[in-house]
């Protein structure tokens, strides 16, 4: 049983506080209902086949405090809950339990931003920026940059439904990148362009990261994570395994995945278990003011 250690005060005001956040989905499953539990006969069963509903635990209760200046990388296998955590922090999803607190509205830089297919790229830029809360004057100032970043040139006047998926993704990224957010969330799936776009987007991301208060980055590219992040979180199957310095976390994760790919399940389980055993989980106490404790 984990002991609760003495409370630690966080000085100043943190950027993001994740307080016992979990995500649970109830989805229909096409797995056959176990015979015998379904007592209806013949015709009834055929007319209304019962669909099993299963509960998927995308993320188990997790708490974090992220302060200004931190750059947090989130790593893990597919299905570990990385995207879910990002969506919860950005506000796109409401958690099943717990809450996410932030000092300002987080901005997710991904390829998810939805735009209107019937309208042209030009109109969608204006619409998307307005939807993010920018004023017309601000949009006019940034418009050319956005078009340049997306690399769309003349196609900007064509309706978005005529764009290829790559063009659409690049435009969405360019629109989202035009904000100067305090809290930035970057989803890995940004490799949707040629090398030229890759360079331009990396440059823009570096600018954004320099200005932002804190950044969250999800990526499978571990060298990027090591070079860009000050702190790394390792998730597996919706559980927090490790929250440590980038070198340590990435090394442990690499060892874990290597064992898995070599079929050594036991070894992998041990690596994960060791990491988990060393974890110090966080429990948040929300206060509206902190008494200064006399500490040496």
């Amino acid at each position: 049983m984990a002991e609760v250690e003495e409370a630690v005060d966080i000085d100043g005001h943190p950027c993001v506080v994740v307080d016992q956040v979990s995500m649970r989905y109830r989805v229909p499953s096409s797995e056959d209902v176990v015979a015998g539990s379904d007592k209806r006969r013949g015709l009834m069963r055929r007319l209304s086949p019962r669909q099993a509903i299963v509960t998927v635990e995308a993320l188990n209760a997790l708490s974090l405090v992220v302060e200004r200046g931190e750059s947090v990388g989130i790593i893990g296998r597919n299905g570990s809950g990385k995207s879910t955590l990002m969506k919860l922090i950005s506000g796109q999803l409401q958690p099943s339990s717990g809450s996410v607190l932030a000092s300002s509205t987080p901005v997710m830089l991904g390829v998810n931003a939805a735009l209107v297919p019937d309208l042209s790229g030009h109109q969608n830029i204006i619409l998307g920026c307005l939807a993010m809360g920018l004023k017309r004057r601000e949009i006019a100032a940034r418009f050319d940059e956005i078009v340049e970043l997306s690399g769309l040139a003349e196609s900007i006047h064509l309706p978005m439904k005529s764009y290829s998926s790559g063009m659409a993704s690049r435009l969405r990224f360019a629109i989202a990148a035009s904000l100067d957010p305090e809290i930035l969330l970057v989803d890995e799936a940004l490799n949707t362009g040629d090398a030229e776009f890759g360079d331009r987007s990396k440059q823009r991301m570096d600018e954004l990261r320099a200005q932002a208060g804190c950044v969250f980055l999800v990526s499978h590219n571990l060298s990027t994570i090591k070079s860009l992040c000050t702190r790394v979180i390792w998730l597996d199957r919706g559980h927090l395994i490790m929250d440590a310095a980038p070198d340590q976390a990435v090394a442990a994760y690499v060892a874990f995945t290597r064992s898995l790919s070599q079929g050594r399940m036991g070894a992998a389980g041990r690596i994960r278990g060791d990491a988990r055993r060393k974890l110090v989980a966080t429990q948040i106490e929300q206060r509206t003011s902190l008494r200064r404790k006399g500490r040496d």
Binding site: A2, A7, G12, H13, V17, A102, V280, Q283
Partner: peptide
């Protein structure tokens, strides 16, 4: 893929952290 419960050991400790939430607001509230 069916969701199997994975067996994870408990963390070493739980660190209670007091946070000043005065300037924070709930995301998506």
């Amino acid at each position: 893929m069916p969701q199997k419960k994975i067996h994870l050991p408990a963390p070493a400790a739980v660190q209670s952290v007091a946070v000043n939430t005065r300037k924070l607001s709930r995301v998506g509230a």
